[in-house]
Each structure stands twice: as C-alpha cells, then as structure tokens.
Computed example of a mutant assay.
Amino acid sequence: MRTQQISTHDAAGTQDLLPWPALMEEIARAARDIEAGRLCAPARQAVPFPGGAVMLSMPATAADVGIHKLVNVAPGNRARGLPTISGMVSVYDGETGQLRLLLDGPAVTTRRTAAVSMLAVSRLLPGGPRHAVVFGTGTQAAGHVRALLDLHPGVRVDVIGHAPGRAERFVSAFDPDRVRPAGRVDPAADLIVTATTSATPVYDQPARAGRLVVGVGAYRDDLAEIGVRTLADSHLFVDDPEGARHEAGDYLQAGVDWASVRSLAGLLADRPPEGAAVFKSVGCAAWDLAAARCALRFDHVLERNSS
C-alpha cells in the first residue's frame, strides 16, 4: 500500500494555504454542515498546566476530513519573550484516518476567526465597510485588520489601544494611509470590531442602523467587550450558539434572550435583517475543520506546481 506523504507547514506556510475568499467559502460550508448534522464538533476540553497556563483540545470530524487542534495558552510567556499561544492542527483523511497535514495552530486560529467575521460582514454590511474601528492591538486585532485591508481595498481602519502608545506601535506594521491610531470612535464608522480581553465593555454606544458591531475577544463569562446599550436594540448573532451560551460574556452579562439570537448558518440562509446588528464570535472546532478543507485544497495546488 502506498504511504501518503504528510505535509508540515509553519505559520507563514499555513497562511498561504488559507486565502480569504476560499476560507470564507469553506466556513460557510461548515456552518451548513453543522446545521444538517454532517459535522461533529464537540465542546473544547481545557486541561490546566501549572502557573495558570492551559491546554485546549478541539476535535472535529466530517465524512471527508477530521481535525484535532491542540493549543497551549501560557500567559506567563510574555515575561519570557515567548508567544502566549502555541500548538498545531493535525488534519486526517475522513475515510482512512491517516494523517495528511500538520498546520500551525495559532495561524489557523487567527485566520479562521477573521474569516468568520468577514463572512458575517459580507451579509450584514453587503456594500462592504468604508470606515472600520478596531479595538485591540493583539494577534486577533492584527488578523482582522489584515483581512479588512485585503478584502476591502477602499476601507479605512482606525485602531484604539487600551494603553498609551500601543495603537501607534501597532499601526506601524500597516499602510499609514489606510490604518491609523485613534482615541475614540469616529461617528462615520460603519464597522466596529472588538478584539480585546477586557472585563468591562470597551464599546457601549447606542445601537445604530448601518453600523455593525463584531465581537471576537470576550471568550469567558467574566469578560465583556460590548455593552448593554449596544446589545439591547440590536439584532443578535453568534457563530456557535452552543458555545456562546457558556463563553459569550457580553451576551451572558447582558442577559440576552437566547431565543432571539441567530446562528451564523441562519444568517447565511436567511435575508439579513434591517437595523443595527451585533455578531459575536466565540470560535469552535468546525471553523478549524473548514480551514483544514481549505488547506488540503491549496496544498494539492502547491504539490502540482512543484512537480
């Protein structure tokens, strides 16, 4: 029997296998598969390390592919000059269970999270954002800024940091004509992205038609980036309803009516509502499986081009 070659990709190589349009297409496919029961993605398991670190295990399977994302989150690594998050995504053939790919875990997480947000943006701001504001200066903020620049050539992005000088240092990695530091939300902004780990809301303006709010940072019930004033009069969406009931701190602290919260699959299937909207993303292994499908597709292209 012929042994199948295993491809291993570092962070840069993993990003190359996940172009935005194709990745968004695969996430939409995965969302439909979840709704139809064709994809299994159980809740992630967290196993503690000493010193406040944690190992996160996230498997998912479908008929064509299976994945296991194993990442470690070690906050103490900042003081050591090491990345806070490390790990990998292993990709398996759905029929044989054989290992096909090894992908960089943080790169997959950053890329697929931004792609989920951009998929929601494409539905809830169908004309595309013209002026975005991003709260945060970490990895997820950078991933969202890059996605906005790549997918929306005319967009301007303001970045708001929580400490003096953070936003200025952050924007130096991008085109200064398109990405700028800011101290407040410009009234003309039509897209707000919160990508922080704040325990108190960083954005709590009244809901406004024509302005979409996307929250990606608050992933525990004790965190909240988006305030009650914004949520109270907005149409509410989440990427993963099951996970959100335990992890979407913004929604949990606001006491939202979960019967009124719609899923990503529902957003893709139905006509988008009129009026203000909030899309909350907590992440799930289904989106990592979508990234794996995308990576397999483009890994084959690279193989053909190199042969």
Rank of each mutant, 00 (worst) to 15 (best):
A147C: 06
L151A: 12
L99R: 10
S307E: 11
T137H: 07
A28S: 14
V71C: 12
P241W: 01
M1E: 12
I226L: 11
L17M: 02
D104V: 01
S260H: 11
P50W: 02
Y203N: 11
A43T: 04
A46H: 14
P42T: 05
V193D: 05
L119E: 02
M55Q: 09
S7A: 13
L124F: 15
S86R: 11
A107H: 06
P21Q: 12
R208V: 01
R130E: 02
A218E: 00
H162T: 15
D104M: 01
A195R: 12
G76K: 08
P129C: 13
C40M: 02
S122K: 12
D177W: 04
A22I: 00
R112N: 09
V238G: 12
S260R: 15
L231D: 00
L149Y: 10
E242A: 14
L236H: 09
L212E: 09
A209I: 02
R146M: 07
A142S: 06
M118Y: 09
A46V: 07
P273I: 08
R100C: 09
I192Y: 06
L151I: 03
A259R: 14
R2V: 03
H300W: 04
M55H: 07
P83R: 10
V159Q: 03
V73T: 02
A292P: 06
R184T: 14
V73S: 08
A286N: 13
R208T: 01
A46L: 11
A43M: 11
E247W: 03
M88N: 03
D239L: 00
S260I: 02
L17F: 02
S7Y: 13
T200F: 01
A22H: 10
D150P: 00
A79W: 10
T139R: 04
M1Y: 11
E303Y: 12
H300A: 14
K69H: 11
D104T: 13
A163V: 06
R245S: 02
A62P: 07
I226F: 13
V228G: 08
D299M: 15
V47H: 05
L148Q: 05
D10H: 03
G275V: 12
G52W: 03
P19L: 07
L191H: 09
S90Q: 05
L125A: 04
A244Q: 00
